[in-house]
């Protein structure tokens, strides 16, 4: 029973991070109908930038909390510029090209970013400094630490904030309008290029925060972390129904749970043949199962017609 609760807590925390990243995929897909496969690398760059800023600031004797806040800002600003640049360079020139073309440039951008990151930050793992107290709390027999609590609450707050922006503001209304009908949106006076840029920047800001969260949660960051994380978050977006914001959040949390519960019980399930180190495999089972049985995802309805 404690194990179950523990796996649920771990799953929800990790899932809330997947959800933040999945939102980036789904927002871009909703508005442009393309999958930004370079998004995972934006998460990695966010983590690396934050970590570099944090290390530098702490080294200068800045107290932990201001240092952390400033690092988040640096990472967000950096990732927003990066997201903007990716759209301008890799996607906008191909807006009227075949669907395959932006997929190929996305892979190109990913490779470039990974290699740049490797040149800047090296191949080694960077450890996340111990900053805030990391007390653990006993929660009905399960253990949850401060970092996990902060991650989960912050992620939920950010998602709620995003929903407010998308559903209650002029900008959000324009984003939904562009997603639905670009020509009609232009006829309303919407500069669609601007809205598309803002969408990439918003998604990238979320990615930066998610990158920081992952490295804080695992205590590590490295130049290759974006690949697997990106694939999993993409899986979460597909699970929820790509293009659907609520779907991305639901998909992220569910994938986190599936992974965590799967890892917790895989030993029992396979009679000890496989251990929890196989946890990454669940995401891909989920991806394949969704694509086979429900390609439109849990909350989506339009994948078949657009992809």
């Amino acid at each position: 029973m404690e194990i179950l609760l523990q796996q649920i807590i771990n799953g929800l925390v990790q899932g809330s991070v997947y959800a933040l990243v999945a939102l980036g995929y789904t927002m871009v897909y909703g508005i442009l109908g393309l999958i930004n496969f370079a998004h995972g690398e934006v998460v990695m760059v966010g983590a690396m930038l934050a970590l570099s800023a944090l290390t530098a600031l702490l080294g200068m004797g800045v107290p932990p909390v201001p240092a952390l806040l400033f690092s988040v800002m640096v990472a967000m600003a950096g990732c927003m510029v990066l997201g903007y640049g990716i759209e301008r360079i890799a996607y906008r020139p191909l807006r009227h090209a075949s669907r395959l073309a932006p997929l190929i440039t996305a892979i190109g951008v990913s490779i470039v970013l990974q290699n740049l990151a490797m040149m800047i930050w090296g191949r080694e793992y960077h450890s996340f400094p111990q900053l805030i107290s990391n007390d653990t709390h006993n929660f009905g027999g399960a253990i949850i630490n401060d970092i996990q609590i902060v991650i989960f609450i912050l992620a939920l707050a950010i998602m709620a904030g995003l929903m407010v922006v998308v559903h209650r503001t002029r900008l959000g209304c324009a984003m939904r309008a562009v997603a639905e009908n670009q020509h009609a949106a232009q006829l309303m006076g919407v500069d669609i290029n601007r809205v598309i840029s803002i969408t990439f920047m918003l998604g990238s800001a979320l990615a930066a925060i998610a990158g920081l969260m992952v490295s804080a949660n695992y205590g590590l960051a490295h130049y290759y972390m974006g690949f697997l994380l990106g694939l999993k978050a993409f899986t979460a977006a597909v699970l929820g129904g790509i293009g659907n914001l609520r779907g991305a959040m639901l998909g992220g949390l569910l994938l986190g749970l599936i992974e965590s519960l799967g890892a917790g019980y895989i030993g029992d399930l396979t009679g000890g043949f496989m251990g929890s180190n196989y946890q990454d495999v669940f995401a891909f089972f989920v991806l394949i199962a969704v694509l086979v049985f429900r390609p439109s995802g849990l909350l989506g309805e339009r994948l078949a017609e657009r992809a």
Partner: peptide, 16 residues
């Protein structure tokens, strides 16, 4: 805009 409300559609009209 089918997935916007009537009111949001009209508000979009005043976007400029």
């Amino acid at each position: 805009f089918a997935r916007l409300t009537v009111h949001e559609n009209l508000q979009m009209g005043a976007y400029s």
